[in-house]
Nucleic acid binder design. Structure first.
Lengths: 220, 220
DNA sequence: TAGATTGTTAATCGATTAACAATC
DNA sequence: TAGATTGTTAATCGATTAACAATC
């Protein structure tokens, strides 16, 4: 067996860049069926350095071709492989409010290997409805759905006060990752991954820059 | 006039930490009316170093009290001031789909100084409806609303293909920042700030870690 | 006062950038 | 071949951490 590159852990920043490469190269291919792309082309568009791009490629095991660049399909395949887009993970959404329903209808999930099996809601009268092709189920089926479908990920779109108790129940049921859209932090055992999607961080940045602009203009 | 600290530009990472401090201290105050908090207390909860916290405090002009810590209300006031939470920026939401409607109903915006003046939609028959207390207006009023209300920020929740043309129109009308929830990148003049809220970045990280867990278990 | 905590400088670490030989 | 681009090592830069005097 040929020695395969040990895939050491990729950092958050690297994963984010990989996702950008994936989108950029995917779009380029669709538009102007080009087969190769150089590190400097990618770097220019993503506003980074070409050395960074080449190091990222090395990190995911893609080799380039001197004088030519990288083959677009090889790069896309490597990213799909590293990020597990072809693994068909099972996920559920908890909270069938507007955000939960919007996410249930989002066609992008399946492209990234995520399959939404159910949309749970605390209001039992909503059970049976279909949102974005996903059936709404009552919340007390939480544990049985997680176990029956081998669900790995829960997308939490509930009010802040409901989030922690639900997280506890899901962790007990064997869930391994939580994508938290509730505006509160969660405490979970170390084996469980929580990604907190905190909208106010973006807001802070926008507010700060809008503010700066004002003061700058005022003082000039 | 006493020499006031020149507020040099805060980095993205700093802004993100400030937002976390703001939430953490706000919650602590609400729960157990404590008046002071030490840098190491904050650091422990946010999983960072106490030196970082003290440097951030210095950056926003807050002085601590040796042996005591920082006064919670002074910290909160300084963050509000730096991030401009009390400035009442005008914003509009474009795209009254599920995500746009969900954001229109989000009570958090006003807490951060953002006032949603209108919700625009390309379907004229929706005009006049109320979503989360915000009136839906037809899209062709875009320019007039931006100018009449002195709108600084637009929240874009439209399909990918509609985003760039709308961005162009808004920039022409004098808009200064775009919060882009459409799954596509935008090209704007250098004076305009775009913050792209790209859901697939979070997805990539979750997929990667779920994947790693699997391979780890399998190889052990 | 003694001791806890700040404020700040110095040391370490990691990430970014520059340089350049290897390659086709 | 000549030249463009990769792959990788070395140099630089910035951010994180450690240390410690100043303070109340």
């Amino acid at each position: 067996m040929p020695e395969s590159k040990p895939p050491r852990t990729l950092k958050h920043a690297t994963l984010e860049r990989l996702m950008h490469y994936y989108h950029y190269i995917g779009e380029q291919i669709a538009q102007q069926s080009m087969g190769t792309v150089s590190s400097s082309e990618i770097a220019k568009l993503l506003d980074t350095d070409d050395t960074v791009v080449r190091k990222d490629m090395a990190a995911i095991g893609v080799r380039g071709y001197p004088r030519v660049g990288f083959k677009a399909d090889e790069v896309l395949a490597a990213i799909r492989d590293v990020l597990g887009f072809d693994n068909a993970y099972r996920a559920i959404i908890i909270g069938a409010g507007r955000l939960g329903s919007a996410l249930a209808s989002y066609p992008g999930f399946s492209r990234y290997g995520l399959r939404i099996d159910a949309l749970l809601d605390s209001d039992p009268s909503r059970a049976g409805a279909i949102e974005g092709g996903v059936e709404v189920r009552p919340l007390d089926e939480l544990e049985s759905i997680i176990e029956a479908h081998n669900v790995g990920l829960a997308i939490l779109t509930v009010p802040a006060e409901a989030a922690q108790p639900l997280a506890d129940r899901m962790v007990n049921a064997g869930l391994r990752a939580i994508w938290n859209f509730a505006p509160t932090s969660l405490v979970v055992p170390s084996g469980v991954l929580v990604r907190h999607e905190h909208i106010s961080v973006g807001l802070a940045e926008l507010a700060y820059h809008l503010n700066r602009r004002d003061t700058k203009e005022a003082s000039e």
